[in-house]
Amino acid sequence: MPLTPLDIHNKEFGRRLRGYDEDEVNEFLDQVIKDYESIIRENKELQNQVLSLQEKLNHFANIEETLSKTIIVAQEAADEVRNNAKKEGQLILKEAEKNADRIINEALAKSRKVSLEVEELKKQASIYRARFRTLVEAQLELLSQDGWESLEAAASASEYEPFSR
């Protein structure tokens, strides 16, 4: 157990012949008591400071740990967001490719349909021209026959007889 200032103050030494000067010893012991009390006070203050600094250190260590965990969580969240964005981008790209394929296929189908319709119209136009040519040729042939001249004469004679029938 450490020595206290009271222990020093209450200490009594035995007397012998030719011993130390009692007043000097008492004065020295008083100085030792003062210095010892001062050291004890300083020691207590330093212990309190150590405790305070230890509490602050613990507080900052907790803050550091929290920040470290927060940074890790933020990094993981950023990685997750990046991965999700990448996946979403890939899905959008695949969807766009599907739509592009569908649009191309629809355009090709319409192109084939229009091509078939054009061919059909060409055939119909060709048939129409052939029929029209046949009709015109038949009409020209009728006009070039001799029977028209007699009809023309009869028509000239009956000009003066409207609706003679």
Rank of each mutant, 00 (worst) to 15 (best):
5 P>G: 08
5 P>E: 11
8 I>D: 00
9 H>N: 11
10 N>A: 08
12 E>A: 04
13 F>E: 15
14 G>H: 10
15 R>L: 06
16 R>W: 05
16 R>D: 05
17 L>R: 08
23 D>L: 03
23 D>M: 01
24 E>L: 04
26 N>S: 08
32 V>N: 00
32 V>G: 00
33 I>R: 01
34 K>A: 00
35 D>G: 00
36 Y>A: 02
38 S>E: 01
39 I>Q: 11
40 I>S: 13
41 R>V: 02
44 K>G: 13
45 E>K: 07
47 Q>N: 04
47 Q>I: 00
48 N>D: 08
50 V>K: 14
51 L>E: 15
52 S>D: 10
52 S>Y: 11
53 L>E: 15
56 K>T: 07
56 K>P: 06
61 A>P: 06
64 E>H: 13
65 E>H: 11
65 E>T: 12
68 S>Y: 02
69 K>A: 14
69 K>G: 12
72 I>E: 12
72 I>G: 06
72 I>Q: 13
74 A>F: 11
77 A>D: 08
78 A>G: 06
80 E>I: 09
80 E>Y: 08
80 E>M: 09
81 V>M: 03
83 N>D: 06
83 N>I: 04
83 N>R: 08
83 N>P: 00
85 A>G: 01
90 Q>C: 02
91 L>T: 10
93 L>S: 13
94 K>G: 07
94 K>Q: 14
95 E>S: 05
95 E>Q: 11
96 A>Y: 02
97 E>F: 00
100 A>W: 03
101 D>S: 07
103 I>G: 13
103 I>T: 15
110 K>N: 07
112 R>C: 06
113 K>Y: 09
115 S>T: 12
116 L>V: 06
116 L>D: 15
116 L>I: 09
118 V>N: 05
119 E>T: 13
119 E>S: 11
123 K>C: 03
130 A>W: 03
131 R>K: 12
135 L>R: 14
138 A>T: 14
138 A>V: 04
139 Q>N: 15
141 E>M: 14
142 L>N: 11
142 L>W: 06
143 L>R: 05
144 S>R: 11
145 Q>S: 15
150 S>R: 05
151 L>Y: 12
152 E>W: 05
153 A>H: 13
157 A>H: 07
159 E>M: 04
159 E>T: 09
